[in-house]
Nucleic acid binder design. Structure first.
Lengths: 247, 247
DNA sequence: CGAAGTGTTGAAGCAAATCAATTTTCGTGG
DNA sequence: CCACGAAAATTGATTTGCTTCAACACTTCG
């Protein structure tokens, strides 16, 4: 157990994109007590049906929410990137309705209830946490649109762009691209399509000079063209300062 | 503007399913000031890009969140039924990222900020509102699973069952079935499939003796069989007393 | 009663899944 | 560092679930 000091930087950096936080607010966040844990890849952080435990926050690495349907198909419900909280108020619900798994080895912060309570008691911090929760709801809705209303190439383009803006907000993407350590099969599980088809569409996107996904990296060849293909409108991420990198 | 008195009954009834509310808490909810408005079918209550206004609550009728993708396809993101809040803390975000539309003529309650603030200041009531918001997040995740991981017949079965449990929690469904005043085209827009295909699958579900959708009503012919087909697990709705009707 | 919207059915086409075989990459231990 | 094995990516052939287009029938409601 330690003061959060520097480990919460991605988290705080992201909150500053959407909410007004002054020096005192940041101090409150940095003053929170945090237990940091290193976890390998493919570890469940929470399992469907279990009683929710501590509040967790991703510091490094990539995590996903997922669920397996009765017909056996697995669906990735969300990607959690550094700065994302796994389950803020999950203690209100009696059991997990989905599972959470690491996709890479990760650094995870565990926050005691007391820290959360302390945060919530400060108006600006509380508002910032609400903002974060509303943004994640908006992202989830966009996934519904992605799965229900877009073609395969548009789906991939849209997902790559969503993650681009989110990674950039925590300083993990440049305009060239970003690291995305998932397999094509996992991309398929998040987009509701087979891994084989993901591969074919990726090949065509590269041929068309739009984007390259190789060695677990997304590299933009034509950001504007990709944005047009996806019909991507970054507004739903509610980033006040979408043009800036990490301060 | 009036005391909420009886108009909020579906809302309060639903909250009691998931959260502990004593007499005093219910009194707080009933004491809120409410403006009730009647709205026709196919009216936008909120439009994408607009600055969010008052908090609204559905009293009667059926409402949906929706969004149109750049390729022109419309996706229904959620159904809002009596007792559902349209946007609780939406004032934190600067603009709507989707639109909200009535599907039938509706009775809508408008709640001033002051009422919400008053509610939030009571521990149990606040917790109940959080519970509601978390349940809606869980429902949204299930839609992702529905769109990405299920076949057409499973999708329809799952949606019918989700709405069955939700309508029953506010006393608007019996074990026989419930009113669902949407067109097959609109079902398609919520399930990411064409209206024509919805029709074909509905025909087959009826032939198989599972469920009948006619005259804007869902009638269960074999609730168990339908549940098995959908792989429906009501747990994600987090209803503590799923067997009960309206008290 | 008539018109518009909705539901129903058929035929053809297409996007994506599936199955299968091969190559490439990557992690690991020798 | 290289060699090996496993995982992932790639490519082709085939199948299928769903869409689209189109025509027609049925409701529902002004």
């Amino acid at each position: 157990m330690d003061r959060s000091s520097a480990v919460l930087q991605p988290f705080i950096s992201k909150l500053r994109h959407g909410a007004q936080l002054d020096q005192a607010d940041v101090a409150v966040l940095e003053g929170g007590r945090v237990r940091v844990e290193h976890v390998g890849a493919d570890c469940d952080l929470a399992r469907e049906g279990a009683r929710p435990g501590e509040v967790r926050l991703v510091l490094e690495g990539l995590v996903c929410r997922y669920q397996t349907a009765a017909n056996g198909r697995t669906q990735i419900l969300a990607f959690l990137i550094p700065g994302d909280i796994c389950d803020l108020h999950i203690s209100i619900l009696e059991s997990m309705d989905h599972s959470i798994r690491t996709l890479t080895s990760c650094k995870i912060a565990h926050l005691p209830e007391a820290t959360i309570d302390e945060w919530m008691s400060h108006r600006n911090v509380n508002r910032a946490l609400w903002w974060d929760s509303l943004v994640h709801a908006a992202i989830t809705r966009q996934w519904i649109l992605n799965l229900g209303a877009r073609r395969a190439d548009e789906k991939i383009a849209h997902l790559f762009l969503e993650l681009f803006y989110r990674f950039r907000a925590v300083g993990l993407a440049s305009d060239k691209g970003y690291a995305l350590p998932v397999t094509q099969e996992e991309l398929g599980e998040s987009l509701g399509m087979s891994g084989v088809h993901v591969n074919r569409v990726l090949t065509r996107l590269k041929e068309r000079g739009l984007v390259t996904f190789q060695r677990h990296r997304v590299a933009f060849d034509d950001l504007e063209g990709l944005t047009a293909l996806a019909g991507f409108q970054p507004g739903y991420l509610h980033l006040r300062r979408p043009a800036e990198g990490n301060p």
